[in-house]
């Protein structure tokens, strides 16, 4: 017959558990201190590194991207802090300047695009606007996305929409695209000429005719697309000037 646990054994057990716990939290604490120390050192090194390579970060797009990734990994946003150490670096300036240029380019194109533009075209226009020096040329689509994120503080007047296949559309007019509208934009941006018909949209999105027609009418109403109706017998085609190759080449 198994011996029942006595009071002493239970107390002994509890004591052991307590000791384990104490030891555990001791180790945890020391690890935490160690970790914090490591992070502190890493951060210091990163700052040293940033100062040392300030010019490279500003000039070299690939360098800048990797630096951004490193910062994100340890939870430092070199853009967020306007004062203190990071402002010395001038990283914020780089993106604020880019942000202003993004706004300028977009507003200048609004009349002909209806207020949306592909990210790749925006990049080309920015490069053209920034001048010939190679330091100005080295901006990536990632840089523009980071700069555009900063523009969110202006409300919904400036939004970036992913339209699939790594493509983005930048909207620079007040208002918000509904899910229907951005879906249609996604379909159109994958057409060679940037044009769609109700039939095509129904097929690709699996919508009813009513829903499709309503969504496309809304897009036309917002000036994002033009109607092409060469004769009254055939169904109209809807064209996005923002996606039209013939405009982008000019």
């Amino acid at each position: 017959m198994r011996r029942r646990a006595g009071l002493g054994a239970i107390q002994q057990q509890q004591l052991e558990t307590q000791k384990y716990k104490d030891k555990g939290s001791l180790i945890e604490d020391s690890q935490f201190v160690q970790m914090t120390k490591h992070m502190e050192i890493f951060r210091e090194k990163l700052e040293e590194f940033a100062v040392k390579h300030k010019q490279d970060i500003r000039k070299n797009a690939q360098f800048r991207r990797q630096f951004q990734e490193m910062c994100a990994a340890i939870g430092v946003d070199p853009l967020a802090s306007g004062k203190g150490f990071w402002s010395v670096l001038g990283m914020g300036d780089f993106y604020y300047e880019l942000g202003v240029q993004v706004v300028e380019v977009c507003l200048a194109s609004n009349p002909s695009t209806g207020g949306i533009m592909e990210l790749s075209e925006l990049r080309r226009k920015l490069i053209a606007a920034r001048g010939q020096k190679s330091i100005h040329q080295e901006i990536t689509e990632d840089d523009i996305l980071i700069a555009a994120k900063k523009l969110k503080i202006f409300g919904n007047g400036f939004v970036v929409y992913p339209v699939g296949k790594g493509k983005y559309m930048v909207q620079s007019i007040p208002g918000e695209l509904s899910r229907e509208e951005s879906s249609i934009l996604g379909v159109a941006s994958n057409q060679e000429q940037g044009s769609v018909t109700v039939d095509l949209l129904m097929k690709q999105l699996g919508w009813t005719e009513f829903r499709t027609q309503q969504a496309i009418d809304k897009i036309v109403g917002e000036g994002l697309a033009w109607v092409d109706c060469p004769d009254s017998n055939s169904a109209p085609t809807y064209w996005f000037p923002s996606l039209f190759p013939g405009r982008k080449d000019t």
Binding site: S112, G223, W226, D228, W239, P241, R247
Partner: peptide
């Protein structure tokens, strides 16, 4: 202008703002 090769340029646009731009 590029619009001359943009097919809907030859359809009078139903949306007022777009039409103003077109004209």
């Amino acid at each position: 202008p590029w619009e001359y090769n943009f097919p809907p340029f030859f359809t009078l646009q139903p949306n007022n703002e777009t039409r103003t731009r077109q004209l």
